[in-house]
C-alpha cells in the first residue's frame, strides 16, 4: 500500500477559496482600473466608466467583508477550525523548507522539503497542512484583506471621506494609501497563480484546491514502499515548457510593472504631491501592467477550470460508485487508479 497525493482542503474550503478568488479578482480589476487608469483605460471603459467601476468595487467590497467575517467566524466556532490554529503558526520547518528550496534550485538537495512540497505523491503523509508559502499566503493575505476592508469602508462615501480630512487632496491621499496597500496582494496573487498553475506535475492547475480531500482516495493499490514522491513516473505535458516559460515571464513582468506603476503613478485623480499625470506613463509600463492583468485573468480562468474539473470528478466518482448495472452481463467499469473495495477495507 502507498499513499496517493491528496489535498488538504475540505469541501467548504474549496468553495470559500473559489468565491474569495472571484471576489478578489473583481476587486483587483476594478480597483486597479482606477489606480492605473493611464494604462488600463480600456478596462475602465469596459466596466462602465468611473461610476460602473466604483459600483462593482463597492459591491464586491461588501462581498469581501461577508466572506472574511464568515471565514473568521467558522474558524473560531468549529472544532476543525480551532484545531488548525497551531498548524498555521510559522515554525522552524518553514525556514528549513525555504533554505532547502534554494539548495534544491542550486542542485545541492535532491528533493524539496516536505514543508515546501506541492507534489507530495507517495509521501503525502509527510506533508503538513500548509507549506511555508501557504503560511505566508495566509498571513499576508489576512493582514492585507483586513486593512483593505477597513480603509475601504473609510473611503466608502466621497463626502464622508472629504469630511474626515482637511483637504480634498488629503482625502485622495488616503484613497492612494488604500490602493498602494493592495499592491502587495496584487503581486502576491500573481505569484500564487504561477505557483499553482505551472507546477509541472499539476499543470495547468493544481486541483487540490478544487477537489475536496473527502473525494480523493488516499491509497494506491501496490505494496511497495517507495523512496521518492514518484514524480519520475509522471509524464510531462508537451506544452509545459513553452507555456510555463511564457507565463513565468508574464508573471515577472506583471509584478515589476505594477510595482513601478505604484511608485510613479500612484494617485487618482490627483497624486499625493501635486503632479498631475506624473510618472513614466510609457508604452512599456502600459504593456507590463496589462500583462499583469492578463496573469490575473488566467488565474480567474484556471479557478473556473478547477471547478469544472471538480464537477467532472464528482460525476466520474458517482458513476463508478453506482452498483454495477451490468445489463449486458459484462464487468462493471473499473479504473486503474481507484483501488477496489476489498483492497481499501484491508488497508484501513
Amino acid at each position: 500500500m502507498s499513499n496517493l497525493d491528496h489535498g488538504k482542503f475540505t469541501r467548504v474550503t474549496t468553495l470559500f477559496h473559489s468565491l474569495l478568488g472571484l471576489d478578489v479578482f473583481l476587486l483587483f480589476f476594478t480597483g486597479y482600473a482606477i489606480m492605473f487608469n493611464d494604462e488600463l483605460w480600456w478596462m475602465l471603459t469596459l466596466m462602465g466608466g468611473a461610476s460602473g467601476v466604483t459600483a462593482i468595487h463597492r459591491i464586491t467590497g461588501i462581498g469581501l467583508i461577508a466572506l472574511v467575517v464568515f471565514w473568521i467566524t467558522l474558524q473560531i466556532i468549529s472544532s476543525t477550525g480551532r484545531s488548525n490554529f497551531s498548524k498555521i503558526l510559522p515554525a522552524k520547518d518553514d525556514i528549513d523548507a525555504f533554505i532547502q528550496d534554494i539548495q534544491f534550485v542550486l542542485g545541492r538537495a535532491d528533493e524539496r522539503h516536505p514543508s515546501a512540497r506541492q507534489f507530495a505523491g507517495y509521501k503525502a503523509d509527510e506533508v503538513p497542512l500548509l507549506s511555508y508559502i501557504g503560511k505566508g499566503v495566509v498571513f499576508i493575505f489576512s493582514i492585507e484583506l483586513t486593512l483593505l476592508a477597513i480603509s475601504g469602508l473609510l473611503i466608502w462615501s466621497k463626502t464622508g471621506l472629504a469630511a474626515m480630512f482637511q483637504t480634498k487632496a488629503a482625502a485622495m491621499a488616503f484613497v492612494t494609501f488604500h490602493g498602494l496597500l493592495g499592491v502587495i496582494m496584487l503581486m502576491g496573487v500573481m505569484f500564487h497563480i504561477f505557483e499553482h498553475g505551472m507546477h509541472p506535475a499539476f499543470y495547468p492547475v493544481e486541483t487540490k484546491a478544487f477537489i475536496p480531500r473527502s473525494m480523493v482516495p488516499e491509497h494506491h493499490g501496490d505494496d511497495e514502499e517507495p523512496d521518492t514522491t514518484g514524480i519520475e513516473r509522471l509524464s510531462l505535458s508537451p506544452s509545459w515548457r513553452t507555456v510555463s516559460t511564457i507565463f513565468g515571464a508574464m508573471t515577472v513582468i506583471g509584478i515589476v510593472s505594477v510595482l513601478i506603476g505604484s511608485i510613479f503613478d500612484e494617485g487618482y485623480p490627483v497624486p499625493r504631491e501635486l503632479a498631475i499625470g506624473g510618472g513614466p506613463a510609457s508604452i512599456l509600463l502600459t504593456i507590463g501592467i496589462n500583462l499583469g492583468m492578463i496573469v490575473l485573468g488566467v488565474g480567474l480562468v484556471l479557478s473556473m477550470y478547477g471547478n469544472v474539473l471538480r464537477i467532472r470528478w464528482e460525476q466520474q466518482l458517482e458513476e463508478e460508485r453506482e452498483p454495477p448495472a451490468a445489463a449486458d452481463g459484462g464487468e462493471p467499469q473499473t479504473d486503474g487508479g481507484q483501488p477496489n473495495t476489498d483492497d481499501a477495507a484491508s488497508e484501513n
Partner: peptide
C-alpha cells in the same frame, strides 16, 4: 460506496 475515500473532519 465510499469505503476507499478518507474520513475527513470537515465543518
Amino acid at each position: 460506496d465510499r469505503d476507499d475515500l478518507p474520513e475527513v473532519n470537515g465543518y
